[in-house]
């Protein structure tokens, strides 16, 4: 591309962004825009499939057949969400196999929330209610992301997520209206998942490295702190209905602003988990790599079968 036509293509990109319209795969786009999207969509996809592990941990021990069927359906949805997202990333000219390789070799990340263990059945409730709740708050604005394929994938994902959050809330509601032991289990899950859930929105705005450019490009629509506030405002009244206590002594409802003021999570913990020092980082990655390697014969057999069919047809 000549300098002049490059400049013209970038003008047209900017005009599309300024008009709050969508960029589509064959449009010219700045390198940084493409790279940012690949990084973000890949990280999002990786999170969906790594996220299958903490919940998959409880499928065999779900307390009833009903709960087991629901949990399987949910974990299956996460796999599907990963696939939608890898497909959206591939429209930017990358290959899914390469993205998986980046995940497996630690060159791309996934959401730190999945580096925490699921110790009790109540944790499955807490993940659905809080983790999926936070994910929905993050993902709803992404349905209006400037990159068309990502936005469309998010519309599908958000539609499917709504049952995830409800089933989690239902699990906790059952426990919190149950025996004292069940109530304590529900409270313990909230105590452990509250702070990591707040961290899901990323570092505070003042120290968020990618935010400003992503906002200018229409990839991100709200700041980390705005979304965190929105999550707290939605979630605290739900905890009240459950009869559970949000583990924050600083939590106060401000009548004037209509928002809760709350204690910020300890972000040094977030940075430590991102660096690889969370309770389950090694286990999650090792399980993923093993699943990929153990599945190699299936991919090979499928390819061999397809080749044989083609040979026969020829």
């Amino acid at each position: 591309m000549s300098h002049l036509s490059y400049a013209r293509a970038m003008d047209s990109f900017q005009a599309t962004i300024d008009a709050d319209s969508r960029i589509e795969p064959r449009d010219a786009m700045p390198d940084g825009y493409r790279k940012t999207l690949i990084r973000q969509i890949a990280q999002h996809a990786h999170s969906e499939i790594i996220g299958m592990q903490p919940e998959g941990n409880w499928i065999s021990r779900a307390p009833s057949l009903r709960r087991k069927a629901i949990l399987m359906a949910k974990v299956q949805d996460e796999a599907g969400h990963g696939l939608y997202l890898y497909a959206a990333a591939e429209t930017l000219g990358v290959d899914r196999a390469d993205l998986l390789d980046m995940l497996h070799t630690g060159r791309q990340k996934y959401s730190s929330i999945f580096n925490y263990p699921t110790l009790t059945w109540a944790d499955i409730g807490a993940i659905g209610w809080l983790v999926d709740g936070a994910a929905i708050v993050n993902q709803v604005p992404l349905c209006r992301c400037s990159y068309g394929p990502y936005a469309r994938a998010m519309v599908r994902v958000c539609k499917e997520e709504s049952f995830h959050q409800r089933q989690g809330f239902e699990i906790l509601h059952t426990l919190s209206t149950g025996t004292p032991g069940q109530q304590a289990m529900a409270q313990d899950a909230l105590d452990r998942w509250w702070w990591p859930s707040l961290m899901m929105f990323g570092p505070p705005d003042a120290s968020s490295t990618h935010s400003e450019q992503s906002m200018a490009w229409g990839i991100k629509r709200h700041s980390n702190d705005e979304l965190r506030q929105r999550f707290v405002d939605m979630t605290v009244p739900q905890a009240d209905v459950l009869g559970l206590r949000v583990p924050d002594d600083g939590l106060v409802y401000d009548e004037v602003t209509g928002h809760y003021s709350f204690t910020q999570p300890d972000f040094t913990e977030l940075y430590e988990v991102v660096k690889g020092n969370g309770p389950c980082n090694e286990k999650r990655l090792a399980t993923r790599v093993k699943a990929h390697e153990d599945g190699a014969w299936v991919r090979e057999a499928a390819a061999a079968y397809a080749a044989k069919q083609m040979e026969r047809a020829a």
Binding site: F163, R166, H173, Q238
Partner: peptide, 19 residues
């Protein structure tokens, strides 16, 4: 037969918003 894939399958207690 997998009605539990839909949000309407779940009972939401009264007074709960944004779920």
């Amino acid at each position: 037969d997998k009605v539990y894939r839909h949000p309407t399958f779940y009972d939401v207690p009264e007074g709960v918003d944004h779920l």
